[in-house]
Amino acid sequence: MAIHNQIGPKRLVVGAHYGLRDWLAQRVTAVIMAVYTVILLVWFFGAQDFSYEGWASIFATQWMKLATFVTLLSLFYHAWVGIRDIWMDYVKPVGVRLTLQVLSIVWLVACAAFAAQILWGV
């Protein structure tokens, strides 16, 4: 009599299959944010002018605006992966979960647009 267990290479895998990709995304975005934080701290503690003009001059260069925006995008994606996992784990009604996910996406995209407006408005 053959035993049909669901263990091994022929098992039926169900679910969203986000595991490794999201784990890696969380680590990569965290590294980007950590590197940016170090750059910002070095720049801040090396500064001579602790006024608004001194702080604004840090973000006057195009590469710093771009680095800041990439870091903010990393932050938003990092937040999306985390909040999506929370919605998937703890909100069982599909309609409510989908609504919360869509609202989260809209909020994070709006934050990204606002961040771009702020960065390139300086």
Results as ranks from 00 to 15, higher is better:
L108G: 04
E53C: 05
I86Y: 14
A47I: 00
G8Y: 00
A79F: 08
C111A: 14
P93V: 05
F114P: 06
L100D: 00
V70P: 04
R27C: 06
A2S: 12
W63H: 12
A34G: 15
A34Q: 00
V94A: 15
P93G: 05
W107M: 12
Q26C: 04
L41S: 12
H17M: 11
G121E: 05
A30R: 03
L41G: 03
D49L: 04
G54P: 07
A30C: 02
A116E: 00
Y18E: 14
M33L: 15
A116I: 03
W55R: 10
G46N: 13
M33W: 07
S74M: 06
A67L: 15
I39C: 13
A116Y: 14
I32P: 04
G15L: 07
A79C: 01
A116K: 06
K65A: 03
F50H: 14
T99K: 11
P93T: 03
I32H: 04
L119I: 14
Q6L: 04
V28M: 05
G82C: 04
I58V: 11
G54Q: 02
L119S: 04
K92T: 11
P93I: 05
L72A: 11
Q117L: 09
T68F: 07
W87C: 12
I7M: 00
F45L: 14
L119W: 03
V91C: 12
I105W: 06
V31W: 02
W107C: 11
Q101T: 09
V28P: 00
V96C: 05
T29P: 06
D85R: 07
T61Q: 08
P9K: 10
F50W: 13
A67G: 07
A79H: 02
E53Q: 14
H17N: 15
A79E: 05
K65R: 15
T61D: 08
L73H: 05
V35A: 10
W43Y: 01
I86G: 03
R84H: 15
H4D: 13
W63M: 03
L41H: 01
S51R: 05
A2M: 09
S57N: 09
G54M: 02
V42R: 09
D49C: 09
T37R: 00
H17P: 02
W80F: 14
Y36E: 07
V102I: 12
G19K: 10
V81C: 03
